[in-house]
Each structure stands twice: as C-alpha cells, then as structure tokens.
C-alpha cells in the first residue's frame, strides 16, 4: 500500500471522517482519496485557520476530523492554535506537507518552514515527522488515539523522504 492509502486507512480505523483542507501538490493523493471515498466528508476551506475552526466545531459536535495543509499554511494558524485548539483542549489532527527543505526552490517556503517546529514546540503541541511507510502506521495510529484520549492536538509532518516532495520542484531547482 502506498503512503497516502495507508494514511487514509488509519484515519478510517480511528473514525476520523471530516477532512478540512487547503490544497497542496504533495497532499494531492490524500485529497483524491478523500474525495473518492464517501466515508470522508471533505471541506475545502479558503484558509488554514478556517479549516481548523471547522474541525473544532465538528469535534465538539461528535465528529472527528483532520486538517490538511502545507508548511506555509501552517504559518497562518498560530493564533487559532493558541486561542482555540490548545486552551479549549481540541484534539485537532493536523497533517502538514513539508515544504522548504530537501530541494526547495522557493525562498519564501524555505524561510517560513523554519517557523513550523518552533511554533509547535512553543505551544507544547506534539508533532511527528513521517519519513517512511514502515514506521508511519504505528506513529499515526498510536498518536491519533493518544490525541483523542488526552484531549490534545497532534501534528503529522509529511517529510519529502516519505512523499518524494513537491513533484513540480525538481525541474525548477536547476540553476
């Protein structure tokens, strides 16, 4: 099973149905899988803070969700995490495709990427960088269960080592 099918299967196993997202190249196989499967309830949001707000409302009404975004989108959600997710104890599952490293061509992406882990650490949010299909299932499954058991958010960072990175980037790197 490829990484994206495996990831979606774990979401299903944990009753995570609502998927709010702002699209990204690397997320494409996940989002295709979500929209092709009636189990999932996709919510195409216009901004990442909106996606997390919708996930939070759904959780409080009994529907588990995950928010998918890229690195630069995560940089928009600091206030939402600090004033909604963390203090209200919302087990938000965040899935972040990692840009800005291992072959980035866009200087803005490479700079904003440096704010991601420090932001998560500053707020005390657990995060795991997923690098391979062998260890991914255990990390994701156990961490989702922990998030709901402890009323705490968790972020999964999809490394280029797992996903192959942005497929459009390789040609643009030649200087």
């Amino acid at each position: 099973m490829n990484w994206s099918d495996s990831f979606l299967a774990i979401l299903k196993d944990n009753d995570v149905r609502l998927i709010s997202y702002v699209p990204d190249n690397v997320l494409t196989p996940l989002l295709k899988g979500v929209t092709a499967d009636n189990y999932f309830l996709p919510v195409g949001a216009t901004r990442e803070d909106e996606a997390i707000g919708t996930l939070s409302g759904a959780y409080m009404a009994g529907l588990r969700g995950a928010a998918m975004m890229q690195t630069s989108g995560f940089a928009l959600v600091g206030n939402t995490l600090a004033s909604l997710v963390v203090p209200y104890q919302i087990p938000a599952i965040m899935v972040i495709s990692e840009r800005g490293t291992m072959g980035e061509f866009n200087i803005g992406q490479s700079l904003v990427a440096r704010t991601m882990r420090p932001t998560l650490d500053a707020l005390g949010i657990a995060h795991h960088t997923l690098t391979d299909t062998a260890t991914m299932p255990f990390i994701v499954d156990s961490s989702i269960k922990q998030a709901f058991a402890t009323q705490a958010p968790v972020a999964f960072i999809l490394s280029p080592l797992l996903t192959g990175g942005n497929p459009a980037a390789h040609a643009k790197l030649k200087v």
Partner: peptide
C-alpha cells in the same frame, strides 16, 4: 451555547463544523 475567547473570525467556521456533524440540529 459556545463562547469564543479568541480566534477572531472563526465563529462561522466553527458553526459550520457543528452543522456538518449534526445535520438535524
């Protein structure tokens, strides 16, 4: 009732999540 204490601008996204989760309410 749900009272927001921050996250300015997210009342509608939060309400959307509630509405999707409980379509009969």
């Amino acid at each position: 009732n749900f009272y927001m204490l921050g996250s300015m601008g997210l009342a509608c996204p939060i309400a959307l999540g509630v509405a999707l989760a409980q379509p009969d309410r």
